[in-house]
Design a binder for these strands. Sequence first.
DNA 1: CTGAAAGCGCTTACAG
DNA 2: CTGAAAGCGCTTACAG
Lengths: 331, 331
Amino acid sequence: MVTSRDVAKLAGVSVATVSRVYSDSNAVTDITARKVLDAARQLGYIPNTVARSLKSNRSRTVGLVITNIFNPVFYQVAAVITTELEKFNYKVILSFNSTYERSLLKNLQTLLAARVEAIAFTPLFEDSDVLELLNSSNVYSLQVLGNAYQQFDSIMCNDYAATSKLTQYLIDRGHRNIMLICPTEDRKEGLLHTLAVNRIDSYEGNYISPLPLENSASIIEDAITKYRPTAIIAVTQDVLTALMIVLKKLHYNIPDDISVIAYDENPLSQYENITTIGHNIQYIGTEISRFLLDHLLEKNAPGGAPRHIFLDTTFIERSSVKELTRGNKEI
Amino acid sequence: MVTSRDVAKLAGVSVATVSRVYSDSNAVTDITARKVLDAARQLGYIPNTVARSLKSNRSRTVGLVITNIFNPVFYQVAAVITTELEKFNYKVILSFNSTYERSLLKNLQTLLAARVEAIAFTPLFEDSDVLELLNSSNVYSLQVLGNAYQQFDSIMCNDYAATSKLTQYLIDRGHRNIMLICPTEDRKEGLLHTLAVNRIDSYEGNYISPLPLENSASIIEDAITKYRPTAIIAVTQDVLTALMIVLKKLHYNIPDDISVIAYDENPLSQYENITTIGHNIQYIGTEISRFLLDHLLEKNAPGGAPRHIFLDTTFIERSSVKELTRGNKEI
DNA sequence: CTGAAAGCGCTTACAG
DNA sequence: CTGAAAGCGCTTACAG
């Protein structure tokens, strides 16, 4: 591997000068710079950023830990973050946070060992060891697409508001028996609260967990048969797919026999004209990047109270919700 | 930041000993190791892998460059690779290869500067500067999900064989007017060759590019109206979505009015019972990882001729292809 | 089994 | 504007 010493020798300068040419410092004459660059090109010199990181104590690297479920949202947001950080010469080390024990802790240790300057991670649940590790390190840590630790900044969609909005939307159109199908319980509160506000009693048919996913189709079918909702909110691409297959099997037409709303755009929602609410990938990604860069570029960390940012979701109205009118048996 | 010197001091040993405890070397007594580990825990010591990399000349890092299109296959394969390499203590630096000029070259330079030990990248087209850069560096470079450089190993699906197989499958069921809709031309040959083998004349209606994607719906509609294929092969999730929406608009039923086959599973193919052929994510990801690890772990690079590996695709037969029989007007 | 010492390839005050 | 020198935090022959 060719080093700055080789380049210095060929160019007839010191390694300090070579270094200066490759840093932002303009304390070098054009003629010297040209000599160095010529020598470098001739030798195929590529500066060793590992050595630079060690000496300068700045790795220009950010750690990204995302949940290893095949939800396109995570990948797409990761792509936006990576692309944004690249513009500022930051690299990203990617790792995956599976549900198996200690996976996040291990990933964070690896990232910290690589001296990343900031970390963005999707939290699954609160883990005291993770908390301690992140607290004792002083690298900026940002929770992304979730919020399990009150101590760290977080950026996520406002799922509570989104679910509330959907529920109100359905109620306004005459629906009173609404079913939310979602693998996690985090969107349940928005539904229940909005029902209560509208003086509609909630019951067990309002929230259905489709887990385990292998059985989601039969779970959903049973739930529909048993509770006969007039409207369903389906969270996750997998849930929507399973739901639509079940509805087809039961010969339910949308929206005549049942109303459906989905979370996040996907081929099926477009094809069947399903109204959706969902993540704005570009927006989320750039907001996360902005937070990260704020801490990366200005090293004057404010150190104030943790900030928990909720981003608005995007609502796309199509024709999958029926307006229930008087005389209809559901009312 | 606490260093090995701090740990050494507290443990009453030398930094060399601390280093040995954290390396695989077992040249240290249990009692010494315990002293070091205790001190390390007490201080919250995390070994600096940047320094380790510099000294040992092994970064334990792999570079991954994937195309920045929102095709879930790329992300999912990247996830498998990352997870596999993690098992061997390798980190991955992720970057994105957009179509804009020089993006791949820049990404590779950054990765080389970070002294990655191997690179996997999705090639878009051949670029002589990329070729030169990769040749002059001596890090192992593997093309992934594509093959633009004969000089480097490649792993991809056998799209030629897959398209041939699909075409033969359709011909065997009486189809002679087959339309392939695909954003890239790389699958065209498999279709044309198989038509020729079956003594079916090819014509311009056999291959349609749906680009630009914003107009794909109208391009597809025009093509169907003009050429009236009996069967369509749709490559890419976006193309299938656009196609299905067009078919619905034209009131074509599948498979009675038209037969459809898609590349890669997605919600829509499951929902509408579309027969698919496609990538086996886990298989592709582990094969790529195996290649990478072969070169990472045994430093004895064979240096033989480049290897171009084609992986089998997975065929899932559903009910979207009609058997055209005698008396049917299409024959 | 353990330590002292050299050195990986850079950066950056400090002089000049 | 440029160079000599120290040093970032480790690893690893070399002795003992």
